[in-house]
Each structure stands twice: as C-alpha cells, then as structure tokens.
Design a protein around this nucleic acid. Sequence first.
DNA 1: ATAGGGTTAG
Length: 821
Amino acid sequence: MVFKLGLAIASRATYTSKSLQLSRHCSSFPKTDNTFANGIQNDNKSLDFDFHHLFLSCPNAHFAKRLHGLLVLTGEAHNIFFSTRLLNLYSHLGDVSSSYLAFGQIRKKNVFTWNSMISGFVRNACFVEAVDCYYQLLGSSGIRPDSFTFPGVLKACVDLNDGRKVHCWVFKLGFGLDLFISASLIHMYTRFGLVGDARKVFDEMPVRDLGSWNAMISGFSQNGESAGALRVFEEMKLVGVKMDTVTVSSVLPIFGPLNDHVGGMLIHCSVVKHGFESDVFVSNALINMYAKLNNLRAARRVFDQMMVRDLVSWNSVIAAYEQHFEPHVALKLFLKMKSIGFQPDRLTIISLASVAAQCGSGHNGRSIHGFTIRRSWIAEDTIIENALVDMYAKLGHVEPALKVFEGMTRKDVISWNTLITGYAQNGLASDAIEVYDRMPGFGDIVPDQGTIVSILPAYSHVGALRKGMGTHGRAIKLGLHVDIFVGTCLIDLYAKCGELVEATSLFQEVPRRSSVPWNAIISGHGIHGHGDKSLELFKEMQDEEVEPDFVTFISVLSACSHSGLVEHGRHYFKLMQEKYGIKPILKHYGCMVDLLGRAGHLDAAYEFIKEMPFQPDSSIWGALLAACRIHGNVELGKVASNQLFVVDSENVGYYVLLSNIYANIGKWDGVDEVRSLANDRGLRKTPGWSSIEVNNRVNVFYTGNQSHPLSEEVYKELEVLLTKMKSIGYVPDYSFVLQDVEEDEKERILLSHSERLAIAFGIISTPHKAAIRIFKNLRVCGDCHNATKFISKIVDREIIVRDSNRFHHFRDGRCSCGDYW
DNA sequence: ATAGGGTTAG
C-alpha cells in the first residue's frame, strides 16, 4: 500500500520540487529505498535496468551515486538524456557538487543540460554559480537560452546589473510575452526595491496570469508598500481573477502593518471558504498576521488547528509569544518543537535570544551564543549578532555584549543602536554617549530614528542638555524631529534637563493621538513637583480621548507622589483598573507605596504591600525604607531592611538608608551594626557624584574628592559661603553624617558633599546670575538641600538640582519641592 | 529531462 503511494508519486513523473516535497512528507519513504535497492539487486543479474524507474525511486544521494555507477557500468553515462537526469537528481537531493561534476562530464551539452544545471544551482541557493553558468551558456556556440532558462537566471541575479542584462536578452530573443518570464522579471525588480520597474513590466503584459498578479502583490508587500499591495489585490479581484494559496500568503502580511483587523479576518474567511487552511504557507501567514495584530489567541488557534506544521510554523508561533512577552510559553513551544525533531534555524535563534533576555536567564543566553558559534553563524550573520548584543545587554551583561559587537565583521546601524541602547539601559549613559560619538555616521551607517531614540535618553540621564540639543539639531537635519518617538525623547530630554517650557512647546508640536508624548510631558511635570499640572494634562488627555496605557499611570501616580497628592493617587490607582482595565504592575505598586509613605501614612503603605497580589521586590521595600528615613520610623525601617537584605542584599543604598535612620536618632551602635553587616558582605558605598555642564564640558565631582583642577578654589568658595549662610540662619544638620565624629569634622564632611562642590564650581566658573544646573547620581542629601536654599539667596541665582528622583528648583531661598520630596 | 509567483527577523 505504502509502496504504491511512493510509486504513484513517482510515476506522476519528474523531479519537480513539489513531488519531492510530497515524498519527503511521506513518512514511508524508507520503503521506497527498498524499491530502489531491489531494483538494482534484481536487475544486476541481467544488467538490464529500468533506469526510468530507478531515477524515479532514487531516495538519497548515496543511491544516486550507485545509480551513477550503474550508468557508467552499462555504458549509458554518455546518454545525454540520462546524464542530464542524473545531474538533476543530484541537485534535487541537495548535492550540488556531484551535480556539477556530472554536468562537467557531459561532453555535448544541450539546452536541457544547461537549464537543469542553472536551476539546480538556484535550487541550492548557489546564485553566483547559477549566473556564471548562464554566462557560460551565452558563450558556448550553437546554443541559445530558451524560455526555460530565464526564470531560473532571474531568480539568481544578486546584482541589479545582471538582472537588467538578462532582461535585455529576454527582449532580444523575443520572450517578452512569456508569462513565466514576466513574473520572474517582476520578482527580480521588486527584490531590488524597484517596484516601479516591476509595475512597468506588469503593465506592459497583454495577458496576465495568476502568477504575475501574485508576483506584483508580493512585490509591493515585501517592499513595505502595504497600500500598493492592497490596491493590486483589489484590482485583481475586480478583473475577476480568482486567488489561490500563493495570493493569500502574499497579501496576508500587509494587514499587520495596516493594523486592519477586519481586512485580515475577511481574508481568513475566504481561506476557510476555499479550504486553503491546509496549505502550510497560508496558515503560517495567518499566524504571523494575527501576532502582528496583537491577537495572540487567534494566532495560537490557527497554529493548533494545523495538520502539518513546518519550521516556519514553529518559528512563527514562538516569535509571537516572545513578542508578546510570554517567554515561558515560547520556551515550552521550543522544547516541544525540538522534541519532535525540528532543528532550530537562525530565526528560531533570534526569537530565543530575546526569550532568554526576557527570562533573565544568563545560562540560556550563553547556550544560545554557543549554539550560534558551533553553527558558525557568528561573524557572518549581522542580524543574529545584533540579537546577541541585544540579549546580553538586556541581561545586564554589558561586557559580552561589547565583545560580540567588536567581533562583528559587518556592523550596521542597528548594531550601533543596539549597543548604545544597551549601555543606556544599564545606566551606563557615558559609555552610551562614547559609542554614539564613535559611530561613523557615513556609508551605510547613517543615524536613523533608532539611533536618536537610543542616545537621547542617555543625555537625559546625565542631564547633558547641550549635547542633547546638538542631537536635536541633527534630528532636524535628518528630518526625524517629526517622528513621534524622537519627539517624545526630546520632550523627556528638555523636561529632565529642567527646561519645562521648551518641553511643553515641543509637546504642542508633536502629534498627540498616541499616549506616548502625553506620558512624557505628564512625568516631566511630575518630577518638577507640578503634580497639579500633571493631573490637568491627564484630564486633557481624557478629553481628547487618547487612550492611556500602563506607562501613563506610572507617570500620573509618580506625579502624585512627588506632590503629596495622596487622595488623587488612590483615585487614579482605582480608575486605572476599573475604567481602563489596566492591571497594575510592580512599578504602579512602587509609586503607591512611595506616595503613601512619603506623605507619612507609613502603616497604610505597609498594609498596601501586604495586600499586593505578587511578591514585593526591592523597589517596593526600598520605597518603604526611604519613607521610614524621612519620618524617622525605626521599627518599620527595620522590617523593610530585613526584607531588603534578603531580596537585594548586594545593594548598599539600603544599608546606608537604615544607618541614616539610626544616625538621625543618635543610635550609633545601630549605625555600627549596619555598617559591619555591609562590610561583612564586602559591600562598599556607591560613591556619590555630581556633575555640571560648563562650556559644553561635563565636570564631575565626587564626594570629598579634590582631584578637580579647580578644587582649591572650590573649597575656598565654600568656606566663604558657609560664613554667609550661617549669618542668615543656616544650621548644619549632622544627622546626615553617618560617621560618629566631632562636630568640626562633621561640618567638613557635609561641606565636601559632591553636590556642594559642583554648585561652588558653578558659581565661580559661570557668569554672574546665570542659572546653575547640577546633576546628582543619588538622592540629594537633606542638609545639602537646606544649604542650597541659602546659597541661592546669597548668590542670587537659580540653582536647579536634578537627583536620581526628581528636580529641585532653588530660587531666592526656597525650593520648588516645598521641602517635600 | 529543464521553468514563475508564497509565510518568519535584529
């Protein structure tokens, strides 16, 4: 029975890829091995072979070699008919070199031979060789290419010049009207992005068959011209050409980019109507379409209903889950895929790299890297290497990311963007800036939207307003400033550098139908302590019917917490769930704990943590601990730190906070205890630093550091200021000094806090009355905050301090935060 | 004996 099936496939004749595909899917293939072997065995005695039959049932390259031997043995090797079939057989079985060897042995080649060789090369993706073969054919006397030659050659053209030359020959030999060739020409031109030339070929066709329509549709869709593809598709339906599975799999990819749910589903309906679901290409395209339309369930349903799945099906469904941040489902599917015998390919690996990053699994990440090395995909596949750089960066492993990047032979814009983003997202803004400055900016590597949105947050992070403005100019030159993401990053930059007015005016210019720019401007006002303005903007957003997302509520809630708007915060936390159906994530809870804690509702904050639906992490307990520091609650502070020393025992910040609480009430044994705890764990305090941009140069000051060229003058200035400050009522608050030392010493310690060094430097190195902008990596110290108020009055300057939390705008002896932060 | 147009990505 099975045997008959094998023969039936074979007897429908010819080694078209379709029949081979079918026979590969036929799990009973080994039986036909026997057919072949028996055929040889039986006929060997009489030396009378049915070569026809043997060709048709030859199962693999090994038997092809035996067949080859038999041909030689029986003197049939020079039969052009058989030898051409032999080279064809080899190429179908994936053995191009044997195919080419057989080709070389044929002394008198005819067009069939040449055509077979060319298409054999193409089938095995040896495009350069195929084109070469075509040129040899042109050069051999007495033989002309025929209509069968061109489709293969056109597919092989990796160079546009070759493509155009072949097109000329097509004209010269009078094949301009051949349908197969026309479709191939259309395909060739669209491969080089020349949709116009393709369209010209298409328009000049007096008759069009389905193949040329399909070529035109896919030509548009693959060049990102979804609307164009849709137009051709509609046109085709209008003239009454019936679509087939190829049409369907060519149009399906456009509905994702067009965000056209209805259109996509309509096609899905006709797929069902025509029974196209059984086509693997069609189902795969459906999975991808639904994934891009964010309809993960529909994508999964298509996948589950498939009878036959191929590697693309698995890759598609894995990528779908990966892109919807369900790495564990993706991983499970991958294991399943492997267990039924599918080997991962490059696309699987690209998804898996992201899956590993999302799981935070460094172990998986390294195995993926190892796998690509074993397959020698590394150093030759830019996309995979970019994926690896991205993976390592997201895992927080910056050094391996850099190593992969440096080892790349072909870096493109995305490689650079990925590395810049990688540094920026790991808090290494200055490294990000360094990489950006190193970026060539010519050739193929021209900064694009991705570059701008990766570097701007780095500038925002260190408050490098001047450099950021330079990039703003570059974005305008590149015409990228109209882009909504670039615009949003610029809003964020100006807001984070204290230029709220500039940020607001940019916001007015940016298209605001999406929540993205709104989120930026809301949080911008929030960090400046203008909570009321943030809420006003949120109302405006609702009035304009812009759908808020989870980021919007992080902005809103943190704005509430910066301004002490407790009741508003509670209200919006509820609203977000009840009206907008947004499930709060850890960050929202963090904002709420911060909000309640800072406002002094410490017990409420603690209750809130206890009622959280998931495990609180260090950010939650950290918020509670910080609140305990402000309100001097030792008991709860200890509870919070005990949790913190478990979940994030490596972070010194929390040890410092707790010892701060003890120092505040003069409990020096507590301070000592915490310090020795930190010492035992080998932890050292994160050095605090502050920076100030003067004359387009960033000056960095570390606490107590005297290495700055002007540090002597800086300390002199601070001494002068201190006397003046004291005369108008400044009293140092020694509770911010963690060392149990004499008061003189404490005063000196406070004086050498990095923010004060930076401010004093600003005073002596910028023009009279110019505003001073300081950036501090940690939170500003309470005594420095108080001192800065006095300084702003004495020197009559605006002093803007941005710390890791928010802005402090000092003017005339007051701070914009109203001492609430 | 030889031929076209199809799905997935950083």
